[in-house]
Design a protein around this nucleic acid. Structure first.
Lengths: 184, 184
DNA sequence: CCCTTCCGTTTAGTATATTATACAAAAATA
DNA sequence: TATTTTTGTATAATATACTAAACGGAAGGG
């Protein structure tokens, strides 16, 4: 996914071309200088929110229409390049596949629990949904005061605003696929 | 309605207070400096889209959540202060009550047609909906090739992407209430 | 009490967003 | 063809977003 100012540039140019408007005309409609519009379209600058707002207003389009990106574009993640965060002294590895995206409100990562590895999560905010799929191994989880044991292929979903603990009581690695969905 | 950077400031501070986070903590989460966050909350600055994006990402909230404004706030329009645009040599007066708002995608204005006044509108873009209510007088309108005559209290709705003409064939003023809704 | 830590605020320096002006090529007009 | 407009681009000057650092006050902790 492109950076936000790149998307804005593309969206702006697309709308402008669609309506067959010149930079001068758009400058006139929006009150943003022609030069600035040019730089925004080229992605040479990171416009101010007020500038983007003026463009949205002048062109009669929503803010979202300017910051949205084409869903059909494909994001490929190379396993080698995924940043990993270590917890519990190396007994819990977290690979952030897709960092939180304000567009979709979703965040996806893989967790590897080494034998006897633990991970305690502090409660998230109200309305956060957590979806866990066990990719490999036998997974034990405690949500609030209840414990569940899930085999490979098992899955669990719960509201994340309560303390929960991931556990691996076995002698083999446990791999999890975690999807977080944030409200609003 | 407040300017966008003011709303962002309020929304940011509200979320931060709700979650009981310090500026330092938010700076840590978002990668935006503490000083900048402070200025944004106070409305002293107009942040860059990338900065706002970083905040949305770090706090796991949507962009819209940051730019939205409390609907319960009231906007009062003083008739004396409404800007008016004159068309057709003063025979058509347009009063923009609520300029286009990217949030609601709506625009509202009042039109006064003097006796024998005309107003020809060039087609808008695809999907634009136009809602007209006749507040006073007898109103004639041509949409594409059809003509309609509406009495006081009458109303009409049509897709604005076609040429249409407002007419006042009477000897009295005609007052219209026009709501434009833009798609997306 | 002093010392530390954490909080919001301020400030000074720098990076850069934005504008106004100028430019060259293309399109239109005559 | 010569002339004028219109197009996107480039540049220089200015306004301002952003950071890092320091500040003073409040809240513990010994």
């Amino acid at each position: 996914m492109d950076a936000i100012h790149i998307r804005i540039g593309h969206n702006l140019q697309r709308v402008r071309k669609q309506r067959q408007l010149s930079l001068d005309k758009v400058a006139d409609l929006t009150g943003v200088s022609k030069g600035m519009l040019h730089q925004i379209e080229r992605g040479d600058t990171q416009p101010t929110v007020t500038t983007v707002w003026k463009i949205a207003t002048g062109l009669h389009i929503s803010f979202s229409a300017l910051i949205k990106y084409d869903e059909s574009t494909i994001a490929i993640v190379n396993p080698k390049e995924v940043p990993d965060i270590t917890e519990d002294n190396g007994n819990c590895l977290v690979y952030l596949l897709f960092p939180f995206n304000p567009q979709t409100q979703i965040e996806i990562f893989t967790i590897v629990l080494k034998p006897k590895g633990n991970y305690v999560s502090t409660p998230h905010n109200e309305g956060v949904q957590e979806y866990i799929t066990v990719v490999k191994g036998e997974f034990k989880i405690r949500v609030r005061d209840d414990e569940y044991t899930l085999p490979t292929g098992g899955a669990i979903q719960f509201e994340g605003n309560v303390t929960h603990k991931y556990m691996n009581d076995t002698d083999e690695d446990v791999t999890l696929q975690v999807v977080m969905h944030y409200p609003e």
